[in-house]
Amino acid sequence: MEGNVNWIPLGILGLMVVIWATKFLTAIRLKQKLKKAWDGAPFFRKKDTEESLIASLAYPAKGKTIDSQVDDQTWHDLALDAVFDQLNYTQSSLGAEALYQKMRLLEFQPQDQLHDLEAFFEEHPDLRLKVQVIFNQLGKKNHNMARSIVANPGKHYAGLPLYIALACLPILCLFAIPFEPVGAITLLVISVVFNIVFSSLRNWSNKIRLDNVSYLVRIFASAERLSHLALSQQEELKQAVKPFKKTRILASVLQSPTGTSEMEIILLYLNVLFLLPQIAQVYIYNQVKAYQKEAQKLLDLLGEMEVAISLLRHKRDLEVVCQPVFTETGGIEGETLYHPLLSNPIANDVHFQKTWSSVGTMRPGNRPI
């Protein structure tokens, strides 16, 4: 009996090695797929629902000056939802929300930071690919509530020391088995059963809050990983992510289920056994409340990165790219403009001050903008 139980800690260590190796190999395959997709190979990307994207409009980037907003009727009349789909190469819901906000919450001023990011990623394709991998692993989650939680973190939550103590108890029992087999195994069984029941009851009564906080945990963990890359915004990332560095430990197991990996079953049991959702919830809400400015900064920085990469990828498919020039005189002037969804459009010149006028010709079978 005693000889057999001595193998339990080694079994736990072996399981950890298997988990690490599986994640490592998965990341390599993902990197290869994303690299091919950048050159035009098919790559499945889960889409965010329109309802989820619209909900994100209530929480724009901090300090963003909204000069105008595209209303629902204009958005659908001009088929801008289809234009959004053309532009949207984002790998995460955070990036998709940022792109959606760019298109509907308008700023009538140059986007120098965004253009600088595009240029940076164009000059550093290896870094761009690493960033895409991180955002893909962050993944999609409709109505993830990350922006809402950061904007309204709520009250301070107690109970973190208790959750950590309960989570550590089964581990301590495992290492105590070689020294006191009967007592350690008895306490191990009791602690495991208690944690499973306690976690299940807490999850059942607070499922929505726990589900939402998991995505925010992974956002902070993604930001921490990005802060180690030699990006143009590296210093800003490092400063903003400091209060949330510990989230990387939690994020390694708080993954959205995809149904494509047996490892997800193991991670699900680990969540329940070690009360990880409860620990994540209390820790994140308290940290966000204490460091709300830094949390908002991270959302803005990460969203801007994905927008830059998405636009850069879309421009690869275009023959002509036009960059708008802002002036102090007001109005809109453009030459040879056309709607991007028309397969055979007629380009028109546009002059818009207080009234709208377009100058162009009509030919049979063609449509103006």
Rank of each mutant, 00 (worst) to 15 (best):
T26F: 04
Q111L: 09
F43D: 02
R147G: 01
E333N: 15
H124I: 00
A308I: 01
T22V: 13
G183H: 12
L169G: 03
G3S: 09
I177N: 03
A58H: 13
A158F: 13
R202E: 08
K155S: 02
N152S: 08
F84Y: 14
L237V: 02
K207E: 05
A21Q: 12
L311T: 01
L53E: 00
L166I: 11
V193Y: 09
I190N: 08
H351D: 01
K31Y: 06
D317M: 13
I369Y: 04
L99E: 00
F244L: 09
L80Q: 15
L276F: 06
G303V: 01
K35E: 12
N212D: 13
A61D: 11
S227Y: 14
I369W: 04
L311S: 03
E264W: 03
E50L: 14
Q353V: 00
T26G: 08
K141W: 03
H156D: 07
V133L: 04
E224L: 02
G139E: 09
I196P: 03
A151T: 10
D112A: 14
L87W: 04
P243V: 05
P243R: 13
I28Q: 08
H156C: 00
Q296D: 14
E306C: 05
V307S: 01
V241W: 08
V18W: 15
S357F: 08
T247H: 05
L312D: 06
L210E: 08
T260W: 07
L342N: 04
V217Y: 05
Y291A: 05
A82V: 12
V359D: 11
A61F: 02
D48N: 10
Q113I: 05
R202P: 04
S52H: 11
Q111V: 00
I369S: 08
L299R: 14
V182S: 10
G330T: 04
R248N: 08
K35G: 01
D85Y: 07
Y59V: 07
L174V: 15
A96S: 15
E335K: 07
G40N: 04
L273G: 06
M145D: 10
I196G: 02
L337K: 09
H339P: 02
A41P: 05
L99N: 01
L117D: 03
Q137H: 15
L114S: 11
K36Y: 03
Q91L: 01
Q109R: 15
A27V: 03
V193N: 07
C173N: 14
C322D: 10
R104D: 00
A21G: 07
W7P: 00
N6Y: 07
V18P: 13
L53I: 03
Q287V: 00
D81V: 03
L106R: 10
L268T: 07
D300E: 13
A61W: 01
K23G: 00
N366I: 07
S256F: 13
V272H: 10
F43I: 01
I190S: 03
N195C: 04
V17Q: 09
Q73W: 11
T361R: 11
V193F: 10
